[in-house]
């Protein structure tokens, strides 16, 4: 029996995302994929399935959904208000979505990108080895109201009511950055200024990258104004013509001409993608050796996420703050999202 998720309402910028496409740089196509890769790993851990499954990425606003058969869902990334048939459900958790029930997801309470995962994954058409929409390249399209999204067969039906404690990444913070090929175009004074500046995330930003604002002088590189276009990778911090840094994300272009002061570590990119307009971000240079070590630890952590998930209902005698937990599967005191943020 084929199972689908009916989209009754969809917020703007909602797309299907997975881990993106590798191997097409040669042809001018960047990897793309989820803006917050950690949220993909968290959803896979909650549902006990592979990380390559496609999910729904919601850019600041959710929607209304209905399942054509009983299915499992998990919610990760930017916490949003969510309910099933009017009963509040917790974020960062897996739930049953019974056939015909209405799943409502509202606006993000913190962060930008929320994710709706389904057991079995979304099984839309594979293009160039992935299901991700890459709108900048003309691959796929946004999800709209009245779309019916096919769902794959779920191998672990029944496993629900699990939660996890997400890594905090929804309120800006410190970004670790490594020197890159054009860092030397900037003077030591400019580098120092860059590391000691509190930037705010601009309102201009999307899956290709986010612009940062700074009070006072911008960052300029005389040497960098006439460089030949070079390879770009996600995380690169371009200094654009007006001196404002622009941090590139998963759907960035493959080459670019603006000088780059360094590259944000992949482990810290979810923090960039999830920073709301106005959130404060700062940079700190780390050595390449330290960066490799940090990335290695992050990889292990993501691989072991499944061991960190916990049943949402636990032994009441071991829970000091009992009332802050949900006591009936899927239903909560109603203020957990506020607490999580």
């Amino acid at each position: 029996m084929s199972c689908s998720l009916i989209v009754h309402q969809a917020g703007q910028g909602m797309t299907i995302q997975d881990q993106g496409r590798l191997g097409y740089l040669e042809y001018g196509l960047s990897r793309g994929g989820a803006a917050d890769h950690l949220a993909i790993a968290e959803g896979a851990a909650l549902l006990g399935q592979d990380r390559c499954k496609a999910t729904l990425e919601m850019a600041g606003l959710g929607g209304e959904f209905e399942a054509t058969e009983d299915m499992r869902i998990a919610l990760t990334g930017a916490p949003m208000r969510a309910s099933i048939d009017g009963g509040r459900i917790v974020w960062n958790a897996s739930h049953a979505l019974p056939k015909g029930a209405r799943l409502s997801i509202g606006g993000a309470v913190a962060g930008v990108y929320g994710y709706l995962h389904v057991g079995g994954g979304l099984e839309t058409t594979v293009k160039l080895g992935a299901r991700s929409a890459h709108l900048a390249a003309g691959l796929g399209s946004p999800v709209f109201a009245d779309d019916i999204l096919p769902v794959g067969s779920d191998q672990s039906i029944g496993q629900i009511g699990m939660g996890l404690e997400p890594s905090q990444r929804f309120d800006g913070g410190l970004l670790r950055i490594v020197p890159s090929l054009q860092t030397e175009f900037f003077t030591p004074e400019q580098i120092h200024h860059f590391e000691t500046t509190e930037f705010r995330r601009d309102t201009r930003g999307n899956r290709m990258g986010v612009r940062l604002q700074t009070k006072g002088a911008g960052f300029q590189s005389e040497a960098g104004l006439s460089v030949v276009s070079e390879v770009i990778v996600p995380g690169d911090v371009q200094i654009t013509g007006d001196g404002a840094p622009f941090v590139l994300l998963s759907e960035c272009q493959t080459t670019g001409g603006y000088p780059r002061i360094g590259t944000v570590l992949p482990a810290d990119l979810p923090r960039v993608a999830q920073a709301c307009a106005g959130a404060v971000l700062q940079f700190k240079f780390v050595s390449l050796e330290d960066a490799v070590e940090i990335e290695s630890r992050e990889r292990t952590k993501r691989q072991n996420l499944r061991q960190t998930i916990q049943p949402l209902i636990r032994d009441p005698r071991k829970i000091p703050n009992l009332l802050s937990y949900q006591l009936i599967s899927g239903v909560t005191a109603g203020d957990d999202i506020e607490k999580a943020s």
């Binding site: 890159s180 090929l181 030949v228 690169d236 960066a291 990335e295």
Partner: peptide
């Protein structure tokens, strides 16, 4: 020869086309 990001190398054969 220089590094690009955490997991890349770039071999540059010039600084203009």
């Amino acid at each position: 020869l220089c590094t690009l990001g955490v997991d890349g190398f770039l071999v540059q054969f010039g600084d203009r086309l």
